[in-house]
Nucleic acid binder design. Structure first.
Ligand code: FES
Ligand code: FES
Lengths: 145, 145
DNA sequence: TGATATTAATACCTTTTTATCCTTTTTACA
DNA sequence: TGTAAAAAGGATAAAAAGGTATTAATATCA
């Protein structure tokens, strides 16, 4: 497994995909998202359902419905998706799973790990959901394979 | 969940603990390790069994038996434990779970993520199992709570 | 208006992976 | 050679991942 859970990987890919399609001017169905990011369709549906409840994507039922992201959502940081799905463990948790990461009672890896962990947090807080639309449209970035 | 699996967290804490005890001159039983790192005893047994097979810790059965690490093991990098338990996904895998991370067909997070991922890899390759014995003996570093 | 097709939402089930507990085998030593 | 200490191995439980089926909402058209 990578650094995120599979659920979170799908969530990120899906949101980037929806964001791109929205910026190209259209809604997109679960089916198309699943194809576009190469993920199991019904599992993805459940993930999007959850993100939708949290307002991290928008949805509309019925013909011509589908998922999209509004202006404000485009500006929200990617970290919010990760936090919604995997929690904030990756941002604040101890590398060795101690109850809490602390300067007072640090694990062996603490000093070096904290730096890296903060970089991850910073990266995901400073990039927002709509950041990659251009690159995706141009095909510079990929969301499948 | 943190950056490593729970199994991996226990494995790392256990190996550090065994390493410390060895350097203090003694073998240590699963029971004592479980107490020392605050982990479920029988789950830990399973993990150590596996690490033992791979030669990442040494063991002796029977009375006065227990776990210990030999000289060469002390010098092996921490990365080997992580790789044995969680695989190398965290070192080489794509952040968004694409089949493979590539410069040719990068995901949106690739450029910035690769740097961080390499730092993690580097950190774990350059620190070895015995590195923290002193700090642990002195109580500067902690393996429980 | 009412039927219909389209689409997301919900509920439930199966498989796989991860985490935990219980039993057997080995071994030093009295 | 019996016994207790200890690791190794096997069985079980819980959680994550993935799949199936049904329901609810809604735009469109006859
Ligand atoms: S205490 Fe372990 S990372 Fe801070
Ligand atoms: S392609 Fe995703 S991290 Fe390299």
């Amino acid at each position: 497994m990578g650094i995120f859970s599979k659920t979170c990987e799908y969530a990120l890919r899906a949101v980037f995909f929806i964001s791109q399609k929205t910026s190209e001017g259209g809604r997109v169905s679960i089916k198309d998202i699943a194809i576009g990011i190469d993920s199991p369709e019904h599992f993805l549906a459940k993930i999007l359902q959850d993100l939708s409840k949290r307002g991290l994507v928008q949805s509309a039922k019925g013909p011509n419905g589908g998922f999209f992201v509004d202006e404000t959502t485009l500006k929200r940081p990617v970290a919010e998706i990760v936090e919604a799905v995997d929690g904030n463990g990756i941002f604040v948790g101890c590398a060795l799973g101690l109850k809490e990461c602390s300067e007072k009672d640090p694990c062996p890896l603490h000093n070096q790990f904290k730096t890296i962990r903060d970089e991850i947090h910073s990266l995901l807080r400073t990039t927002n959901i709509g950041n990659f639309n251009e690159e995706l449209i141009l095909g510079i970035n990929s969301l499948k394979r």
